[in-house]
Nucleic acid binder design. Structure first.
Length: 731
DNA sequence: GAGTTTGAAACT
DNA sequence: CAGTTTCAAACTC
């Protein structure tokens, strides 16, 4: 009883909060925002209902639904907060806070309240609570076939027998499984075994099924609808920071030149936006450096992210009346017009790509029309991997595994021709977003299957023999749930932003907004993280502390490896002892000495020693690197360039971070990092391998300072532990 | 296109 | 948790 009262108190507080928001809803600002929803939602019903999201009065008090004393709404909301809703709401507007409330409440409501309250045991409530759902509702995947679709669709199908333990769904009873099997022409022993195995999941699925069996679907928004609407708003609210980060404050005199380089696809620039922020990787390095990165040499993922001139030239033309941007605005204070967003997305949803209008991020036409139909589509928020893996393979556009809202970046590189199709696919729930898997034994029901892992259904484009399709969507749903129950990160994005973390990179507390890291880390051995076997490499990100790779040579950034840790330990030990053994000194010195020839091979060899391997600086000489783009340019490159007669390699000593990444710093706030990154124990060695100088490469020396490119190296915090992540609240 | 290699996923 | 097996993609020829 006490718990119930406590719960009531909480809901009372919630009601108060809603009441407070009601006053907000009367404000012109709210009306304005509310009128902006430009993206045509896949389901008209969802759109209509989404409006109700903002009407707190429409929200059924959660207390009327969940009476279980075990429910702790605050706790249950936490994961959602973790995924960024709260973060967004804190920083942006009370409107989104309202939305957040709506999301939380309505998602819980998506199951029939009657069912939830009458037919579920207290323990079952937890299953229905949003936190128990695999993850925040993504834009694409749900619509593209996530079995949560059944939450809405299933309402009609399963509107009967509510409360029965045994349900008629194929997913939840043995008969259904049998039917499933019989429906599969290629039924065999293995499949039977598979079925048997999956039966274990049926019980767990049944609870979720209760949600889908809501018989009162009229007043309840589906999760898809909710999420879509929420994300639309999210993107709208967040999108205006995208290009302000893309275009860092630059010296006006060099602005255009910098931009030209920035968006010159031929030089290997690409934008990555796997995370909350737009990521600009300028593979071309700083000016004067012959990086010569052939886009073809990029991993397919990255190739697809190449941003051509056309991209910006064509896609960011906007009506001047709605978006008059000046150079000044580009300099750092640009904020995209929500109106323009509306126009653009409306065009997107309804018309051909030729009608696309995109925010002219800089208002001028410094970029000439090019060839590649690749462009970024702010506002869609698809995961970069989704785009990447497809563009490179000429595959149909795929939606990546759903991302938490904070990871759904508004900026995504999407091929122009694909965009409209994608919209359409979202609306149709079409399975055309498959990954063209070739699974056989896994039946596309394990993470081996790229489609399954991406939470999309296989399609005719796949050469698989799996069951991951609409026909077996409920089974797929069950398996997904089971998979996720085993590994909560099973469907997590492989790449996520590093600023989620900050914990495991030791002293580097500078979260790099533009950096990404592989979520789980690779375990490469033979590939040295230089082939697509390596997920990090494939995703175009550097390895992090989360990785357990050996001989990491990931050109996107090596992890802070064993040596670094060892040497740090060694240093500490030496300090403690007051001396260091000759062997240690020798080994340590070995790292400092770099051939003047700039022969990377020799450098590689130098660090080929297993004991040394992981810590080699991520800096690779562009001129000698035949591998995919070196993401770490900037400082080192500047050094290299400025010391061109010497062609000296630059290594960071072990005390320096090994995971470096070029970023475009956002204004003066990060200027300090330029110098700090470039001055720390950088050693240049003469041809005769004598140390000739210890460069102090401040902004004055570096072309960075001259060009004001603001392309700098920055230490990349690697990924946080999941625990930390889960426990930490966004700031 | 077949065979091999690779590393993640799954299993024990 | 570690070792092994399975699996499908990446890679090589």
């Amino acid at each position: 009883m006490k718990a119930v009262m406590t719960e009531d108190e909480m809901f009372q507080a919630k009601d108060d909060e809603k009441a407070s928001s009601d006053s907000i809803s009367d404000s012109p600002v709210f009306d304005f925002i509310n009128s902006l929803s430009p993206i045509a939602t896949p389901k008209p019903l969802g759109s209509a209902q989404s409006v109700q999201l903002f009407k707190s009065s429409d929200l059924v008090p959660a207390s009327s639904i969940f009476t279980s004393p075990q429910v702790n709404p605050q706790k249950e909301y936490k994961p959602r907060t973790r995924y960024g809703y709260a973060q967004l709401s804190q920083g942006l507007s009370p409107i989104y806070q309202r939305n957040q409330i709506g999301i939380s409440s309505c998602i819980e409501l998506s199951g029939s309240p009657t069912i939830a309250s009458e037919n579920c045991s207290p323990s079952e409530y937890a299953t229905i609570l949003p936190s128990k759902w695999p993850q925040p509702i993504p834009l694409g995947s749900e619509i593209l076939g996530d079995a949560n679709k059944q939450d809405t669709d299933g309402k009609a199908d399963h509107s009967q027998d509510v409360g029965h333990v045994k349900l008629s769904s194929t997913c939840y009873d043995q008969n259904g499984i049998d039917q499933l099997d019989s429906s599969t022409s290629g039924r065999n022993v293995q499949e039977n075994e598979l079925t048997k195995q999956y039966n274990d999941d049926l019980a767990a699925c049944s609870l979720n099924h209760l949600i889908s069996r809501s018989g009162t679907g009229n007043a309840v928004m589906s999760k898809s609808d909710l999420s879509l609407e929420a994300q639309q708003l999210s993107w709208k609210l967040r999108s205006d920071v995208i290009f302000s980060k893309l275009f860092m404050p630059m010296d006006q005199g060099n602005l255009e030149d910098s931009r030209r380089k920035l968006f010159d696809g031929s030089t290997g620039c690409y934008i990555q936006s796997a995370a909350d922020d737009s990521h600009v990787y300028y593979a071309g390095a700083a000016e004067g450096v012959a990086t010569n990165h052939d886009p073809k040499m990029l991993p397919s993922v990255i190739q697809s992210q190449l941003v051509s001139n056309e991209y910006f030239f064509d896609t960011f033309k906007i009506p001047s009346d709605v978006m008059a941007l000046s150079e000044h605005q580009c300099g750092g204070m640009y904020r995209r017009s929500l109106f323009n967003e509306k126009v653009r997305t409306s065009d997107l949803s309804g018309q051909s790509s030729s009608n696309l209008h995109h925010a002219n991020i800089c208002g001028d036409n410094y970029m000439k029309p090019p060839r590649s139909p690749v462009y970024a589509l702010p506002g869609i928020g698809l995961h970069l991997n989704a785009v990447a893996s497809n563009a490179s393979n000429n595959k149909p556009f795929t939606i990546n595994p759903p991302l938490p809202p904070e990871l759904n970046s508004p900026t995504t590189i999407v091929s122009c021709s694909e965009t409209v199709a994608v919209r359409r696919k979202l609306q149709n729930g079409d399975g055309g977003s498959c990954r063209r898997c070739s699974c056989k034994k896994s039946k596309c029901l394990k993470l081996y299957c790229a489609c399954f892992a991406a939470k999309v259904y296989c399609s005719g484009l796949c050469s698989c023999q799996g069951l991951n399709n609409h026909t077996h969507e409920e089974t797929v749903s069950c398996i997904r749930k089971r998979t996720e129950s085993r590994n909560p990160l099973a469907f997590a994005p492989t790449v996520t932003r590093a600023c989620d973390s900050g914990s495991d990179f030791g002293d580097d507390s500078n979260n790099t907004p533009a950096s990404t890291r592989h979520k789980r880390g690779c375990n490469c051995r033979k590939s040295s993280c230089l082939k697509k076997y390596c997920e990090c490499f494939q995703s175009g990100v550097g390895c992090s502390m989360s990785c357990r790779c050996e001989s990491c040579k990931n050109s996107f950034g090596k992890r802070k490896g064993v040596l670094l840790l060892a040497t740090e330990k060694m240093d500490k030990g030496a300090k403690a002892k007051g001396t260091r053994s000759k062997e240690e000194k020798l080994a340590f010195h070995k790292q400092d000495v770099v051939s003047q020839s700039g022969d990377l091979t020799s450098t590689e060899d130098l660090f080929a020693t297993p004991s040394l391997e992981p810590c080699r600086s991520s800096i690779l000489l562009p001129s000698t690197c035949s591998e995919p783009p070196v993401s770490t340019v900037g400082c080192s490159s500047q050094l290299h360039n400025s010391q061109s007669p010497m062609k000296a390699d630059v290594l960071f000593s072990p005390s320096e971070t090994c995971a470096m990444e070029p970023i475009l710093v956002d204004g003066s706030s990060n200027i300090q990092e330029v110098s700090s990154s470039c001055t720390t124990r950088v050693k240049v060695v003469s041809p005769n391998k004598k140390r000739v100088s210890s460069l102090q490469t401040g902004t004055g020396l570096s072309p960075i300072g001259r060009s004001c490119r603001k392309l700098v190296l920055k230490s990349i915090p690697s990924f946080p532990s999941l625990t930390d992540d889960a426990d930490s609240e966004p700031h």
